[in-house]
Every structure is written in C-alpha cells, then in structure tokens.
Design a protein around this nucleic acid. Structure first.
Lengths: 228, 228
DNA sequence: CCTTAACCGGACCGCGGTCCAGTTTCATTC
DNA sequence: GAATGAAACTGGACCGCGGTCCGGTTAAGG
C-alpha cells in the first residue's frame, strides 16, 4: 500500500503547520513492500481488483470468517496461488481490504482540519486522534480483528507503526524532553482493536465511555487536567 | 487449573493485611472450566501427565512452534483426539504448560512477602507487580506468545482477567473514588507479552528500560511522583 | 515477431480440529 | 468379591483451510 498519501495528499504543506510537513521518521514506515496497483502487469492488476472485490463481497455475505482464500479465489475466478502471490497471506488480503479507510484516516490527521489535523495544540490533537480512531475501529471491528497478524507481527505492522509514530510525535510536542516513546505505546494499546472488542462487545461498555477513558488517559499521561 | 491457590494458599489471612483475604470478585475468575487432575479417571490423569511431559519436551527440543498436536500425541503414545479432549485446543495445552508458573506468580502477589504481597502500600505493590510480571513474561516469552488465543479471546482468558482484576483492586485502593477499571486495562496493556516481545526482541530495548517505563506509567496514572 | 520475465492455476502438504466406533473404568447390585 | 450396566475415555480416520510449488501460459519490450 505504501501509504502514498504521505507523499501526495498534503502538496502545499501549510507553512503555519506545527509539524514540518511529514516528519522523516514517519516516512520510512510508509515503505511497505506491498506493490502499487499501477506498476503491475495488466492482467495482474485486473485480477487484484477482482480479488479485492470478491473478498469484500464475501465479507458482506458471510462475515470475515467466510473470507477463505479458496473462496475468494473461486469467487474471483482465479487460481488459489494467485491470491497468495498478490497478498502474501490471509492477513495481507484483509489489510488490503482495510487500506482505503486507513488512507482516509491518515489523511485526516496528517493534513485534515483541526483538531485532528495540524493547527491545534498537540494535546488537543491527541484527544481528537483517540476519539476518531475509537470510532473508526468500532465500525470495522470484525475486519480489524480478523486482520490480526498474530502476536509476533502485530506491533510491527506498518499501519500500526505509523499510527503510533504519529502519537509519539504529538507526545514529544506536548511533553518536550520527556520519554515519549514508551508512552506512545501505552496510548496506542488503549486503542487496540482486541481490547475495544472485549470492552464493548463482551463487557457491554458503550463507546462513549471508552472516549471518556481516552481523555482521562491523555490527561494523566501528559499530566494535564482533563476537560470534563 | 482453577487456580486452587486462591482457596488454599493463604489459609490464615494475615489480619493486618490491607485486603480482606481474597476479594470475592476475583474468586469467580478462578472458576475456570478446566478439570482438576484429581477428579479425573485414573487413565485420563496418567495420560494428561504424559501429554504435558511430552509437550514440555517438545518445547525444549524444537521450540514452541514444534508443539504440534499430532507430535505431542505421538510423543505421549496417545491418540490425537485425546489431546483435544483433555485440553480443548492448542491454546489450552500451552496454557496448561504455563499453569505452574502462573500459580506461583499468583501466590506471590496474593500471599507472598511485600512489596509484591499484602502489607505494602498499594502503589508500591503495583510497582512491584509490574516489574515482577515483566521479568516473568520475559522468561517465558516464546510460550506466552504461542499461547495467545487470538484477538477475540485474548482479554477473556482467565489468567489475564485475574491479573487485571488484581491490578484494578490495587488501583482502587490507591485511588479511591476514581474510575479504576479502564486504568487497569491500560496498565495491563503495558505488560502485554506481544508488546514486550516487540520492544525487547525487535526493537532491542533492554528489559530494565521497560521497568523504568512501568514505574513512570504508574506514577502518571496515579498522579504520584516517580521515585527515580 | 521473438525473447524473456512475470504471472497463472491447481495439485500438493501439514496442521488444527471433529467424529464416532470400540474399549476401559467406576459404581452399584447381588 | 464378582457381575453388570452406563458413563467416560481412547484413538485414528476424516475434513477444511492456510500456505507452497512448479509446469504451462501470457503479457511487455526490442
């Protein structure tokens, strides 16, 4: 996916922006090995589109659990090997399905309007970021859970790394001189899809309560007061 | 299983203990459906022991990835179906392998000496808890990761629930009147095996640094000062 | 048109998990 | 203490799915 939005979606970086365009350390995280649709051979690109379409249809019909590699291949009238060649593994396919909303979300906090985008105070952006991500994850919960690459790769996956990098950046701006790296992990952990699933679906906690919890968490970690 | 330590390991609850024996809300978490070894049929108990022994041997020889259900069954001279009947699934088998150290750890903070066990101030117990769990998880990292039951069950698994319940209890004692539930999730998330694996193995962060991070996190969440 | 590299597809493998016919153990009864 | 009936256990055949591999095919460049 290579999160092309990083390079293209903010062409005139607002000069008054509080962060210098896109911070260089975030750029490398976008360098995902996944091939862009444009540099594929014609038939390969066509099959890729058909596969994604078929996968989306299967999700709509039978839920994420119904997205079998064989079923996707069959529904796209394509060989099984092709699916793996294109997406690596099941996780890759599901992440590709989530890529659209991922890019939209990235654009929103990289170059969208405040308080999510640049222009607001870092702490306010942090607050908005968490609430927005909570809502987005709540919407795509099933896919997000199904796209989990397992405990060994979960924290290394580019989307997650990228989001965390952004949090770390805001945190460094809000708390200059303090150790922001570990705190960013803690903040991101609060937004973990599996935890959200557990709290909302299995423990019946409303999402609004989780948002309050996020605001409180940000307040405590940054040692500011919570705007209740 | 069933964390019998809850009922038996602290027979005379120290009267000066700051928590009343074992808090009732934690007891129900101990009610794991897993059968005790004593109430099994003779042959079943024997096979269970042989299976655990074989599994431990396989872990030692080929790592956690080498613990195939078929391999375990063969190494124990037992049918494959027996392994599943006894442990439910692969995750159940691996969690059974971890049960010994789990019980030891529970005993340590339920009835062991301070600052981990009762007698110390709640915040100090919290600090000790995190550092101890960090070290334990660091030791058994491979097994802990392999025993992950997937995103839908991860937070519901009894050991994790139990540890979090303990953290919530300490937190309520340290912060009376404040919302401790969500904060306990945040604290536990910092101790997530997958995150520890990522930080130490993939990002090369020494465990000591994670311990500092824990102390800092406790300080921020409880709005106390960090004793650096 | 021809070469070559990339792609396609389906046969194949291993593993987690299920199922059921046969066997063993335990409790009860004589 | 032996017989007996039923519940519980056993084990291997079986299934579906994720993932790999390789011979045949097709698209792109000169």
């Amino acid at each position: 996916m290579l999160y092309a939005v990083l390079m293209s979606a903010a062409p005139p970086p607002a000069p008054e922006s509080r962060e210098a365009a896109v911070p260089p350390e975030l750029l490398q995280l976008g360098a995902v090995g996944d091939q862009d649709e444009t540099c594929l051979r014609a038939d390969a690109a066509r099959n890729r589109a058909r596969l994604l379409d078929a996968a989306a249809r299967l999700v709509a019909e039978h839920g994420a659990a119904g997205v079998t590699m064989e079923a996707v291949a069959a529904a796209a009238s394509v060989g099984k090997g092709t699916v793996f060649r294109r997406f690596g593994d099941r996780t890759g396919l599901l992440m590709a399905l989530l890529d659209h909303s991922e890019k939209k979300f990235q654009a929103a906090f990289l170059s969208g309007p405040p308080p999510l985008g640049p222009g607001a105070a870092p702490v306010d952006r942090l607050r908005a970021f968490g609430c927005a991500l909570l809502r987005r994850t709540g919407d795509e919960l099933e896919l997000q859970l199904a796209a989990d690459p397992g405990p060994e790769r979960r924290y290394g996956s580019p989307p997650r790394q990228f989001l965390r990098g952004h949090v770390a950046l805001l945190l460094r701006q809000a708390l200059p001189g303090e150790e922001a790296e570990l705190l960013s992990y803690t903040l991101m952990a609060y937004l973990d899809p599996a935890q959200i699933h557990h709290l909302t679906r299995q423990r019946g906690m409303p999402l609004a309560r989780l948002e309050e919890g996020w605001l409180d968490l940000v307040a405590r970690l940054t040692r500011t007061r919570s705007p209740h």
